[in-house]
Design a protein around this nucleic acid. Structure first.
Lengths: 147, 147
DNA sequence: GCTAAACTCTACCAAAACAGTAGACAAACT
DNA sequence: AGTTTGTCTACTGTTTTGGTAGAGTTTAGC
């Protein structure tokens, strides 16, 4: 029932990239430092995002990562899908077959509905939304606790 | 993100008890046979349901288990809560503290909302609903494939 | 009382998933 | 040539999951 750290890191990484979206490629090293993850582990999280086409990379010196689409065109569902591998609460939601009790089971419909409702939230939010929320939150903190 | 087998077995066990609700205490042995679980493992699943007050037991010969409340007064949320231990998609939904990034993080609201939507489904369905669905499904199978 | 039927409790265990670490390699800028 | 940066693969310790097993306790019925 819990999201794994992979899923949670994935959305944080993507938000980091979105925040620095118009500054050219972002170094793995910098993301690692900001998000407090080792570079090696970060690569394991960021690579699937590249493979799945959510971000692109530039190799060599002065390389780095950047979003493959505009922030408004990437939903949290897209990201979490990559981080978690599957988005369904129960295996049978993805493939009806494989459950030998499918003819008797009354729960598949329930798992499907619960999954659908959960995903509504993730589909309704884009990286653009999250950047706005982030800036809003940062602004409020600055107001409350001015230097 | 996946429900564990404990959660899924728990709702099946409770449905089994609900179906035989007016026949006196149900033997662990019988549930085990119908649900294809070993009696020992079944006890480990059923005992928390008793401890949490969803079912009651009678010890000794001719003992067994029965629902502690009417089927219409037990929701899937009640059951899954026991089976899974926690109902939130991310730890921070339960306890806001403990996350050192809570001041910067924009995702807690998202996890809360997604969890809430998912739980809507589980809260809206009672064991009575599931018994009805079960009988309906059984009736349709019988029509389709008469002996 | 004795016995059999049933629930109770605790300990243990193997496999899988999770959360990383580590090191060698490849590409590209300067 | 050398440095910076991304790429790939292998390995590993810990936790969770999904059980098994066995000894003990309570009660009905003879």
């Amino acid at each position: 029932m819990k999201l794994s750290t992979r899923g949670r890191y994935s959305v944080r990484i993507m938000l980091d990239l979105a925040i620095h979206d118009n500054e050219g490629p972002v170094f793995l090293k910098d993301i690692a430092q900001r998000q407090q993850i080792s570079e090696k582990y970060l690569w394991q999280l960021i690579n699937p995002l590249k493979v799945m086409g959510l971000i692109k990379s530039v190799r060599g010196a002065n390389g780095g990562y950047s979003l493959a689409r505009r922030p408004s065109e990437i939903t949290l569902r897209d990201i979490i899908q990559v981080g978690e591998g599957s988005l369904s609460l129960v295996e049978c939601v993805d493939n009806a077959l494989g459950c030998d009790r499918s003819d008797l089971c009354v729960y598949r419909d329930v798992w499907m509905e619960a999954t659908r409702k959960m995903l509504e939230t993730f589909e309704s939010l884009t990286l653009e939304d999250m950047v706005l929320r982030h800036h809003e939150k940062f602004r409020k903190i600055a107001e409350k606790d001015p230097l």
